[in-house]
């Protein structure tokens, strides 16, 4: 049996020093940060990662904060459940509250953290199968590309075809969130949209810019501003509790009968939360009609290259976009948790 240590740092500096490449302790180890543990524990149990130490972040209480004012500040250790229940957040950052309510189950949301949700690893069953040496685990091949790829990417895929599993990520990108990360060289901030990396952009075995010795610290989310509304729709194979087959984070600013501006991000269809700039540009100034919604939906999936078994995702994503636009036009009642 391998040795195992659980470090419990009391400060951020202590935590960062314990991660790979940090200043201490003296003996070499492969340490991983542990927050809510709702993804990492499954990875440990399936031997996808085999660190000899975990760095328990729960002593860093300053990262638990959820500050709701003119803008949002969300600490990395804020629980996902905290986002779904905060009334001001529900009213003004609806897309985020609805996305949070759609995450997994109450048991997971009560433990899972916002930072962990954004940094969770892919759900692709080849990746999750210990016996499959896929490209996300350092192998040479993406078995999904020509295999059972029902749940894989239709946009932005290759050489890996994972989809990003987070519900909060599309919502937060839709809200133009900024993320602050800390590493050995100190904290830095960047747009959350730039935090996530396509397989061709960063390390193929990671889904974001974080290095092994860096931690996600917090998110800053500006107000959408006057006249904006937002929503999150999520299609799942199992209605009660599942990852997204496809999801849609949408914010629109309405002026009379027209859409003045829109922000649109798809989830569950690409290795990153998939922003749709062509659809956003198209929607600006258009009449708020079913014809506009259908045209925007088609633009949202522009460039999609479905694999053998996931062509349905193109239609599903387009349907979600139209449904979200209809909802924000006030033509469909809203309810928590997104599409069932």
């Amino acid at each position: 049996m391998r040795g195992f240590k659980l470090f419990r740092p009391a400060t951020l500096d202590e935590a960062v020093a314990l991660l790979p490449g940090g200043r201490g302790p003296a003996e070499p180890h492969d340490a991983r940060p542990l927050a809510g543990g709702q993804d990492l524990l499954t990875e440990l149990k399936d031997h996808l990662v085999e660190p000899d130490a975990l760095v328990d972040l729960t002593g860093l209480h300053e990262l638990e904060a959820l500050e709701v004012g003119d803008a949002l500040r969300i600490g990395a250790l804020c629980k996902v459940a905290a986002l779904e229940h905060q009334p001001t957040l529900r009213a003004h950052w609806t897309v985020l509250a609805e996305a949070a309510a759609s995450v997994a189950s109450p048991q997971i949301r009560s433990q899972a953290t916002v930072g962990g949700n954004l940094c969770q690893r892919p759900r692709c069953w080849y990746y999750r199968n210990e016996a499959a040496p896929c490209i996300k685990k350092g192998g040479s091949e993406c078995f999904a590309e020509s295999g059972m790829n029902k749940y894989n990417a239709i946009l932005g895929g290759g050489p890996s075809y994972i989809v990003h599993p987070s519900d909060l990520a599309p919502a937060l990108v839709c809200l133009d969130a900024t993320v602050t990360v800390s590493g050995a060289r100190g904290p830095r901030s960047l747009p959350l949209e730039e935090f996530f990396t396509l397989p061709t952009e960063g390390s193929i075995v990671r889904e974001n810019v974080l290095k092994a010795n860096e931690l996600l610290l917090s998110l800053d989310v500006p107000s959408l501003g006057a006249g904006w509304t937002s929503t999150y729709l999520k299609a799942r194979e199992r209605g009660s509790y599942d990852f997204a087959l496809a999801s849609c984070a949408l914010a629109v600013k309405l002026e009379g009968e027209r859409i003045a501006a829109a922000r649109l991000v798809l989830g569950g269809v690409a290795p990153i939360p998939w922003r749709c700039p062509d659809a956003e540009a198209f929607l600006a100034g258009k009449p708020n009609t079913p014809e506009t919604w259908a045209a925007a939906a088609a633009l949202a999936t522009k460039g999609a290259e479905p694999l053998e078994h996931n062509g349905y995702k193109v239609h599903l994503a387009q349907g979600l976009v139209q449904k979200a636009l209809r909802r924000l036009a006030g033509q469909e009642p809203t309810h928590a948790g997104g599409a069932r």
């Binding site: 543990g37 709702q38 524990l41 149990k45 109450p106 048991q107 997971i108 433990q111």
Partner: peptide, 27 residues
């Protein structure tokens, strides 16, 4: 399931439902 998907291990930690299989005992 021992993977946080079935709920058969649900217990209340400080009155909040959690999956006991997905929580370290030291927590």
């Amino acid at each position: 399931c021992d993977r946080g998907t079935c709920g058969a291990c649900t217990v209340l930690l400080d009155d909040e439902p959690i999956y006991a299989c997905m929580t370290l005992a030291v927590r």
